[in-house]
Design a binder for these strands. Structure first.
Lengths: 338, 338
DNA sequence: ATGAAAGCGCTAACAG
DNA sequence: CTGTTAGCGCTTTCAT
């Protein structure tokens, strides 16, 4: 159905090589020839086969975006950012949801390798990601976006905020607002940013001379939704607390649901602080005090860095030294705190 | 770097053809030969090139998912559904955000054609989608998911609820709950489902003997966020209304924000009804009365139907007759209505 | 049951 | 400036 370069060549009465030259904008083609070829291309609505090109060029102009689950609202803006940059630069994005499942992730890595994607933006790095180190060892361009681990620094390119500092800043600010007994709803503690956010919280308490109370810690079980129940339990326990720091806005929404359910008003009775500034954080009731890592821009940056790696490697045959891009977080004080 | 079939052949002391036969599970290979080849493959961690395969096979095992914007929460579960099915069936998903922009969409269609994707799931169909009809005319597998237009029926495969009926059911139910003056927050009226939801609303009013008041209609401008302001304006206009029907949950969240801002309680003072049942609809304050089209399952269905089309075409050379898959919506009554 | 050879559509030497 | 040729890695007749 779709015609090929040799047919265009025949119709334009030139060789396939010349058509290829025209297609790729080589300068060494007579204007007259070029025009004729272009005309034939246009008239026949010819579209070169990206597959054949990829086979020859050993590059696919395709990048893979791996994330735990696109249904988690925190990943939507990252995804959009990566895709926007990719489109602008002529790349295509393959989306992979790992469901935080090692088997699925492994399958995807295999498939992506055989599809020869040019690089990976990974937001789903698990604590032991031997697979990712292997990728880099094979000189595959990789950028870790928002999720990384201490051992990655200097070995893999990273785009992230400093979670400890962001958390520290938020909690210090809330302490300045008068909060004293701050409960915390933690994410999966295998993930570095969770423990970093926890560390920021503890450091802020300590530096303010406040006591850390283990009983005010709500640990992650299986899903964010569980924090609805966990918050109810915390309330019903009768423990004294004046606020809840949730390590993601999604958790904060569930926590607020529970507070509301028990007739506790936010922020009058209990303050709630989130993390992420997801799209609706400014429009839930009450709007959330949170910290933003500008995930859309983070995604764009990750995409950009990946493409730079890809192009560097194309030119030099090896990856550039991995950089750490620290993104400046932004404190956003809204009505869920007083 | 990556080794190829001919090297495996050499190592296994057979021909490339035999390796290919083993790889593709052909029966006409001696067990002894097969075992030897498998062993060499395993030992060398050989991965066939999907690109070379695609070039030869003229199929890429890749599908394209087009949507307006992944940041719109309504699309996340559809995306997850499509991707889950694709993965299960051995396909890969390319994600395309059109931003509801014709130029971007056109670019993507071109790129996807030259990448020879095997088919499209499209949730971003614009009112005049000549391009999509052309796709089908070229025997490209296509499924419209959740967004379609009357002229598509019988020409393109569709997975969707009946929006008019779903809306009618919701509004009738709310009228039965005692609501009489129901304002409406409309989406983009160029999109069929918006006008269908509007029609359901009007029919329900009419059948209940209620008067339709044009002044209670809030029209879409540029983004959902605008409904925060529009709702404030509606309140401040002093018009009498006892509830707002929002044609998406996202709009409902913005509307509730405005009501709260003006000291109006939901549902005590004003009822709010949404549409979509996005992930957090059950956890915002108050939880939203809405109607669900089970978007995750809708995405799965769309993916499944697309793959069936692809495989049918592979066998028969042409597309199967396009079907209409009507999804049964579910009314969900929560605390945003009384 | 296995191998030799041609070809998918494009590009890159090399030659002229 | 343009054409010829070989080859990217895999599959698929056609022989044997």
């Amino acid at each position: 159905m779709a015609l090929k370069i040799s047919e265009i060549a025949r119709l334009a009465e030139v060789s396939p090589a010349t058509v290829s030259r025209v297609l790729n904008g080589f300068p060494n083609v007579r204007k007259q020839t070029r025009d004729k070829v272009m005309e034939v291309i246009r008239r026949n609505n010819y579209r070169p086969s990206a597959i054949a090109h990829s086979l020859k060029a050993k590059q696919t102009d395709t990048i893979c975006l791996m994330l735990p689950n696109i249904q988690n609202m925190a990943y939507a803006p990252i995804t959009k950012g990566v895709e926007d940059v990719a489109r602008e630069r002529g790349y295509t994005v393959i989306l992979c949801n790992t469901n935080s499942d090692e088997e699925t992730e492994k399958q995807y890595f295999d498939k992506m390798k055989s599809r020869m994607v040019d690089g990976f933006v990974i937001t789903s790095a698990m604590p032991n990601h031997q697979n990712i180190f292997e990728l880099v060892a094979e000189e595959t361009p990789v950028v870790l976006c928002s999720r990384y681990y201490p051992e990655d620094v200097g070995k893999i390119e990273i785009c992230s905020i400093n979670n400890r500092d962001a958390s520290y800043a938020l909690i210090s600010e809330m302490i300045a607002h008068g909060y004293r007994r701050i409960a915390i709803a933690l994410g999966n503690e295998e993930i570095f940013y969770t423990t970093e956010r926890m560390r920021g919280y503890m450091d802020a308490l300590r530096d303010a001379g406040l006591e850390f109370d283990e009983r005010l810690v709500m640990h992650f079980e299986k899903e964010n939704r569980d924090f609805y129940r966990k918050t109810l339990e915390l309330i019903d326990s009768g423990l004294d607390f004046d606020s809840i720091f949730c390590t993601s806005d999604t958790k904060a929404i569930y926590a607020m649901r529970a507070l509301y359910e028990r007739g506790l008003k936010v922020p009058q009775d209990i303050g709630v602080f989130g993390f992420d500034n997801i799209d609706i954080s400014d429009s839930v009731t009450p709007p959330l005090t949170t910290v933003s890592q500008s995930p859309y821009l983070e995604g764009r940056l990750a995409g950009q860095c990946l493409i730079e790696q890809i192009e560097y490697k194309r030119k030099n045959g090896v990856l550039p030294p991995p950089r750490f891009h620290e993104i400046k977080p932004e404190l956003i004080i809204r009505q869920s705190s007083k």
